[in-house]
Design a binder for these strands. Structure first.
Lengths: 179, 179
DNA sequence: GTCTATATACGGATAGAC
DNA sequence: GTCTATCCGTATATAGAC
């Protein structure tokens, strides 16, 4: 709170004119993240690549850049809150879950576009969820070790999985070369 | 702190006889987790399965049980701390990273035993890291949504990846059937 | 709508007797 | 080693003038 008021150059009296409580601000922030998903996360990534599977990895690349820019101090705010907020706080958790659902939905859209290159029975929801899992788990590990390797290794394995699924000649080298 | 003192039936004076600060306790706890890794996480899982790859998934199964037991309120304490503790707290983060390294080492040991079933050039460290990524990312999502599905879907995709790697007939059904 | 001032409570930590 | 008592800073929130 102190930092927010400082950055806003406002006093606590002003803050409580607009928000009922600190809790209420948190919920508003979580709603804001949902609005920001498309313009901040998805659109810039999609602008870089046209191929739907490449777009999935372009989203992950965005998080990689956040890690690199911050010397691996970055932690996805939604991931942080998912683990930090007490489990009993349902309003917050349901908004976090809504953000994840939307994120997964964007990835799932890509996978549907690439459906003909993927095995017919594959569960696209599960695969899209797995992409988010890879991002969150990779960021978490890179943050704790201050090294980009855990994130890169995780994404490389996911990439290799996609290669297996699409029947590409999979890249099984010790160090997967960048395209 | 209040909860710790309450549970220990001790007073703050007693606490500060044994620990210099709340910080010092955190570091001791993180060292304790490292000691607990083998007896609490690894050994029970290995006792269930003999096949090295099955053992990897038995470890993940252990986390699944924690989720189910708590109605998906569980959050891996190390994962929570990795994202919650300020990045500047290096003593804490280096201990968290040490825990992750040891966890990955246990999985890596299994992968080495299964080396002949895996593609020759495969980076076993990267794959072991990816297993941890899957666990952490899956737990994180299941906690936020209070549903086991994100965890199960992630593990199912990882299982499918292993099937691809070992050349098993991969299970690409919408709902991967339980063994 | 924003300001100053302040209530209230809690957190981490300490003092010193026993 | 443990107890009671307490300090001190900070955090969230409120009151009421302007």
């Amino acid at each position: 709170m102190a930092e927010i008021l400082e950055r806003a150059q406002a006093n606590s009296g002003s803050f409580y004119h607009f928000f009922d409580s600190k809790e209420a601000l948190l919920l508003a922030v979580l709603d804001g993240y949902l609005e920001g998903l498309e313009p901040v996360i998805v659109r810039p990534a999609f602008a870089r690549r046209r191929d739907p599977i490449d777009r999935v990895f372009a989203i992950l690349q965005g998080y990689r850049e956040r890690l690199v820019e911050t010397g691996c101090r970055y932690g996805c705010p939604l991931g942080r809150l998912a683990l930090e907020i007490e489990a009993e706080n349902l309003p917050a958790h349901s908004r976090i879950a809504a953000n994840f659902t939307a994120w997964i939905g964007a990835v799932r859209g890509c996978l549907e576009q690439a459906r003909d290159r993927l095995p017919p029975g594959l569960d696209l929801d599960a695969l899209a969820t797995f992409v988010l899992t890879t991002m969150e788990g990779g960021v978490l590990q890179s943050r704790s070790s201050r090294r980009i390797e855990p994130f890169d290794q995780s994404v490389a394995q996911l990439r290799n999985y996609f290669a297996c699924l699409t029947g590409e000649p999979s890249r099984l080298k010790k160090r997967g070369k960048r395209k």
